[in-house]
Computed example of a mutant assay.
Amino acid sequence: MCLPLPGDCSLDLVDQVVDERQNGRHAARFRGWKAGWRARVQEYLDHGGSPEHIHPWAAVADYAATFHNLYNSSKPDTAHGDMLRRLRDHELRLCPACGELGRPNTLDHYLPKAAYPHFSLTPANLFPMCDACQGEKLVKTGSPAEPRFFLHPYFDAFAADQILKLTIIPPFNAPTFVLEPQGVTEAQAAVITAHLRELDISGRYVKFFKDEHRRLLRNVSRMRDKEQDVLATLESWAFDAADPTPNSWQHLFYDGVLVNPDFLEYLTEGDLPSYL
């Protein structure tokens, strides 16, 4: 899911954090870091956070705890504390990293703060993520063969479109589900494929799809008994599930149903299994 950049300017926040430290014991250290810190935040913005182009800052490696403590403390009435509260006070009802329904209750550092402590407080590096995704992502970024594993919700604008498709393979009473990229460039497809793999999204989707498939057969059986319009109902469900993103788990499932004429024929004319 594509998200708008946070309202807090990542560059301005550097200035504000440094200014707020000027009466503390690290005042001189933060003044010395300011120009380099701003330059690296600008580099982050220019390259969309890509670890292929952004490297750790050796000069602050020994002071990682200083940045981490700022993130962990989040004191009220400080620039970074107010920024973090605004990011956490979101209205998302699904995880932007995977599309699973449910309010994501943690903030993820796109570039992990362990290797990039100076981005601990960078708004453009922080976004809501569900616990399952965060547990899979951890501190991974990429590899020599795949420099970037993960989509960035602020910079990968193509994710505003439906970038995944679900293929439902018969037998339709116990189908196989295949999830893959669609409508993107080869380079975008490579990142999407890595994103799915590294967050175990395909494995998590399959469990959902199996449960949703069982519910679908139960509901369609009931609709047919009541002589209701099955196709119109499925189209309505798919339309509703596309908000706020066509990459939500529910929309991908019902889109996969609607683009599969053989499955639709099975649903409207076939012998459906009996479920209690």
Rank of each mutant, 00 (worst) to 15 (best):
Met1His: 12
Leu5Val: 09
Gly7Ser: 09
Cys9Arg: 12
Leu11Ile: 15
Asp12Asn: 14
Asp12Leu: 14
Gln16His: 08
Val18Ala: 07
Glu20Thr: 02
Arg21Ile: 03
Arg21Leu: 10
Asn23Ser: 13
Gly24Ala: 10
Arg25Ser: 15
Arg25Phe: 06
Ala27Thr: 02
Arg29Val: 04
Arg31Phe: 01
Gly32Gln: 06
Gly32Met: 06
Trp33Asn: 04
Trp37Thr: 11
Ala39Pro: 00
Gln42Trp: 00
Gly49Ser: 01
Pro56Thr: 01
Ala58Arg: 14
Ala58Pro: 05
Asp62Pro: 00
Ala64Gln: 13
Leu70Trp: 11
Leu70Tyr: 09
Leu70Ala: 12
Ser73His: 09
Asp77Gln: 10
Asp77Phe: 04
Ala79Val: 08
Asp82Lys: 10
Met83Pro: 02
Leu87Met: 04
His90Val: 06
Arg103His: 14
Pro104Tyr: 07
Asp108Ser: 07
Lys113Cys: 03
Lys113Asn: 01
Ala114His: 13
Tyr116Leu: 06
Pro117Trp: 11
Leu121Pro: 04
Pro123Ser: 09
Pro123Val: 04
Pro123Gln: 03
Phe127Glu: 04
Pro128Gln: 09
Cys133Trp: 13
Thr141Asn: 07
Ala145Gly: 14
Phe150Tyr: 15
Phe150Ile: 10
Leu151Val: 06
Phe155Asp: 09
Asp156Thr: 01
Ala157Asn: 10
Ala159Pro: 00
Ala160Asp: 12
Ile163Met: 03
Leu164Trp: 12
Pro170Tyr: 07
Pro170Asp: 07
Ala174Phe: 10
Pro175Ile: 06
Pro175Trp: 05
Thr176Trp: 03
Phe177Ile: 01
Val178Phe: 09
Leu179Ser: 08
Leu179Ile: 12
Glu180Arg: 13
Gly183Cys: 08
Glu186Tyr: 03
Ala189Ile: 03
Ala190His: 07
Thr193His: 01
Ala194Asn: 13
Ile201Pro: 04
Ser202Thr: 15
Ser202Cys: 08
Phe209Pro: 01
Glu212Arg: 15
His213Glu: 01
Leu216Ala: 07
Leu217Gly: 00
Asn219Thr: 12
Arg224Val: 02
Glu227Lys: 11
Val230Met: 04
Val230Asp: 09
Leu231Pro: 00
Ala232Leu: 13
Ala232Gly: 13
Trp237Asn: 06
Trp237Pro: 00
Pro244Leu: 07
Trp249Val: 12
Gln250Trp: 02
Pro261Leu: 08
Asp262Asn: 15
Phe263Val: 03
Leu267Ala: 03
Tyr275Asp: 12
